[in-house]
């Protein structure tokens, strides 16, 4: 299994906030980075976090109200692209002082923060950071940014599933086409056979499957089929 699959596999089995915390720690270790942080501003009325920062740094951040000068927070609130820390605006003196404190506290000198938006105005942020040279970090972005984008999306789905009451969740609406696709997959048809039946290319079929998978918060095709069954979205 790839690092991504191993992580997603463990995440899928997470049932409690402690399990999510363990997944985030395992993610930090398997990708060999200093920290990984998932933080939602408001889930069912409260903030939620699973992270590897020290308690001292968190307390200090709170005390100093760094949220007001932290360019990561501002950048991710306004914009949807992954935020490479060094491409944010650090020109403000307060931001630079904050950065100095952060580095002093052992937060890495490189970071990537991915904004996540859910329905009902949910906003969350997933961050990874590390001590690395520009070249090493560039390599990490190239190889792992896509994994991080998927991971951010899936952690959020999993956390919402644990924390939020059913009404607050983004209950997926699958189209008849997606339902047919999942049904054929559950019957053991190959992708070639399914794309023939639906008269679409295999590439389009892949996008439909991925789309259904992401909506169901399912980590692979088998899990998507199982989830669709358990929610009564497909039946024989």
């Amino acid at each position: 299994m790839t690092k991504l699959e191993t992580f997603l596999d463990a995440l899928e089995r997470s049932q409690t906030p402690d399990d999510i915390q363990s997944s985030v720690e395992a993610l930090r270790d398997s990708y060999g980075i200093s920290n990984a942080v998932y933080h939602a501003v408001n889930l069912d009325g409260s903030p939620y976090a699973a992270l590897t920062y020290s308690q001292d740094w968190l307390d200090h951040y709170q005390e100093q109200k760094y949220v007001r000068v932290d360019p990561v927070v501002r950048g991710a609130f306004q914009h949807f692209h992954p935020q490479d820390w060094k491409r944010l605006d650090w020109s403000n003196r307060g931001s630079r002082e904050f950065l100095g404190e952060a580095i002093g506290a052992g937060i890495g000198n490189q970071g990537l923060s991915i904004p996540i938006r859910g329905p009902n105005g949910q906003f969350a942020l997933f961050t990874v950071n590390d001590d690395a040279s520009d070249a090493e970090w560039g390599q990490f972005i190239k190889e792992c940014q896509r994994d991080m984008m998927l991971i951010s999306h899936f952690i959020h789905k999993q956390v919402v599933g644990i924390v939020c009451p059913e009404g607050e969740r983004d209950l997926p609406k699958l189209s008849p086409r997606e339902i047919d696709t999942l049904k054929y997959l559950s019957l053991g048809l190959s992708r070639g056979q399914i794309s023939d039946k639906l008269k679409i290319s295999e590439h389009t079929l892949r996008v439909y499957i991925d789309s259904a998978r992401h909506k169901l918060g399912a980590l692979n095709t088998i899990h998507a089929v199982a989830t669709a069954f358990s929610r009564g979205l497909i039946s024989y």
């Binding site: 949807f80 996540i116 938006r117 896509r146 984008m149 998927l150 951010s152 999306h153 609406k173 189209s175 008849p176 086409r177 997606e178 639906l198 679409i200 996008v207 439909y208 991925d210 789309s211 259904a212 992401h214 909506k215």
Partner: peptide, 24 residues
């Protein structure tokens, strides 16, 4: 993953499939 024109107005052209992915 947010609101898009394709998903809001052109579902008839995607077989009704809402295309929603962090990588699209």
């Amino acid at each position: 993953t947010g609101q898009t024109m394709v998903n809001d107005h052109f579902l008839d052209l995607t077989d009704g499939v809402q295309i929603s992915s962090p990588l699209i």
